[in-house]
Design a protein around this nucleic acid. Structure first.
Lengths: 201, 201
DNA sequence: CAGCTGACAGAATTCAATATCTGTCAGCTG
DNA sequence: CAGCTGACAGATATTGAATTCTGTCAGCTG
């Protein structure tokens, strides 16, 4: 009765766990459900993940890593740093907003998971701000930006200042009319603060 | 047995309700408790507030109004607009942070209340951004700021960009070492974006 | 013998019975 | 008679007994 006869891998378990979470939600997804979906006993799942918490953490990490990977492209491009920075911020906002608006239940599920796994989230945020710092550093090197002192500090400030447009806590606001304008206003203000004093004029 | 023999006023009920909330927390504070604290029957409380929700809403508003009033001073001062803006933002951050750190339980209670009363909170935020807009408008008039288009839009952007330092959702972060620097970095970036192009040089 | 199974103990959740609370109102009281 | 009381009905919350889940492990299977 197994869905497939492939060997049981961590990857397949993660896949099944995501599916179970999608179907049952975070409160009712059990590891027995996951095992059933894979056609194995739940004891087998524990061979790959020490605890249910570890399994959920791994799913969370996978999810967050996908987002980070999608944004990495903007970092290495050969283009105007300000444009790249704007695109990166917009990319993050759009990605989150689409997830939140297209499938609110799934998004709520992952909001619960991220709430449970602050360590993984901290790591994710560190990765994102590192990407931002890279763009800022490049902008400073090219004379497009004036980063106060440390690009990493500036990057963190940019990330925090735009929190309303990527922190799941604010997901409810992303449907409201006017968010677009609010996003633009915040980004514009930040970009003006970031531009080199000579203004590129 | 009444604590006092004064007539029962809305004000006295609000006072007692705050006390009951402080003692019992938001989940266990009942209107019977409030009535008992005042030495009256709970029916009397309903003479002044149609529902328990209305009572809690009024308490919430009182609480938020106090914060807003404390900041209003910075708006009308005759000083460098940038300094006033910085002081206003710091004032908001310090006020919230002290409330959150000095009495975490009470702060949690009010976080629950604000979560219940989004209408009142929206009004409070509108008032705060109006104060900000006033400072921005003044700064533009004096040639200290370049507000992109509408001071109100800029004010909203400033408020949202500093959300991490006043939104109760982030209260947990306010104890961490480094918040001070993060706050400074965000505010500096915003101030640079706000300053007139001539830089006041 | 590497990997899986399924019975098991203790932890966590559900559910229904019970207790408490909200909001109303007829009547009391000063 | 303006304002308060307290009994009441329906709604909500609490409790603890019964179910379900997690995590382990001795033994089965290919």
């Amino acid at each position: 009765m197994s869905p497939t006869t492939e060997t049981l891998t961590a990857e397949r378990i993660l896949e099944a766990t995501e599916e179970v979470l999608r179907r049952h939600g975070p409160a009712k997804a059990t590891v027995v459900d996951v095992a059933r979906a894979l056609g194995v006993s739940h004891g087998s799942v524990y061979r790959h993940f020490r605890t249910k918490a570890a399994l959920r953490e791994a799913v969370t990490q996978r999810w967050l890593d996908r987002t980070a990977a999608a944004l990495a492209g903007f970092v290495t491009e050969e283009r105007d740093p300000e444009a790249r920075l704007r695109d990166w911020l917009r990319g993050l906002f759009d990605a989150k907003r689409h997830k939140a608006c297209d499938d609110p239940e799934l998004f709520a599920t992952f909001s619960v998971l991220t709430g449970e796994n602050s360590g993984v989230v901290d790591q994710h945020i560190a990765e994102l701000t590192a990407q931002l710092a890279e763009i800022v550093r490049d902008g400073v090197a090219r004379g497009a930006f004036t980063a106060g002192s440390d690009p990493a500090v500036t990057a963190r400030a940019i990330f925090q200042a735009t929190g309303r447009f990527h922190d799941p806590a604010y997901a409810g606001e992303w449907r409201r009319p006017g968010v677009e304008e609010e996003f633009a206003a915040v980004v514009d203000l930040l970009m003006r603060g970031l531009r080199a004093a000579d203004g590129g004029a």
